Amino acid sequence: MAKPTLSNRCRIVLIAPDLPSVDDCVRKVEDALAGGDVASLILPIANRDSASLQKLGEALVPIAQGRNVAVLVEGDTQVAGRIKADGVHLEEGAAVLREQIESLNGRMMVGAGGIKTRDEALEAGEAGPDYVFFGRFGYDTKPEAHSRNLKLAEWWSEMIALPCVVLGGSDPASALTVAETGADFVALSAALFSGANGTPGQAVAAINALLDESAPRFED
């Protein structure tokens, strides 16, 4: 995941919602993608088996890629390959991360998640992923982003050029708080798909407007 260039500020990463119905998930994500600028879409395993994860990806990859939105699959390189996703998101630690990066040899983007400490972040970064991710899928039920993730992002952004993604909270305003750490991307799910902030498309549009107005800009 390259440094943001479109808006020269923190951009949105969508985390697909954990819904029993693949069709419902596709409708919600498609609506969110229609709402405005989105950098990428991550398909988490959540409660899905490989078959339903693949079915979801088969429906969403052409929709997202048609809008120049990269698609990454959590933890399953085989599904990612079958659906022609842009990459994989891995949370198994630095050793597995390094092994998968070497195995894929540049054929896919690789993101590093499951990071809780500075040491883990540095170990992951040394493996050479395309980004590091601070936060855990499904843990965005509180309005604000987790303070630990914000502190990690602020430290990382000051020290390391490799892009970082930070999980926001359920309140759209948490996207701006994440942006103020210097993070390159804010990952959102509950803020978009809970229904509390309008339709997914309306929420994406409102968050982009907030970031356009108030988010710090990156240096060229």
Results as ranks from 00 to 15, higher is better:
E180V: 07
P129N: 08
G168T: 15
R67F: 04
A161Q: 10
L41N: 02
E58D: 07
I160S: 02
V71I: 10
A34Y: 03
G81R: 14
N208Q: 06
G113W: 09
H89W: 15
L33E: 01
F193I: 04
Q78T: 12
I115Q: 04
D76F: 10
Q202H: 06
V38T: 04
L188Y: 10
D140R: 13
L211M: 03
G36R: 00
Q54W: 00
Y139D: 12
E58G: 10
V69R: 00
K3C: 07
D49P: 11
E123A: 11
A70S: 12
L41D: 10
L152T: 08
A145V: 13
I207V: 11
A64K: 02
A205I: 00
P143G: 10
P143K: 08
S147I: 15
E158G: 13
V110I: 15
G168C: 03
V26W: 11
D23Q: 12
L53N: 03
V22C: 11
Q78E: 12
A203K: 06
E120H: 03
L56Y: 01
G111M: 11
L167P: 06
L72Q: 05
G36H: 01
V166C: 01
S50I: 13
G169Y: 07
V22Q: 00
E219S: 15
M108C: 07
D37R: 01
E92Q: 10
Y139F: 15
R48E: 07
A39D: 04
E120A: 10
E74A: 12
K151L: 14
R27Q: 14
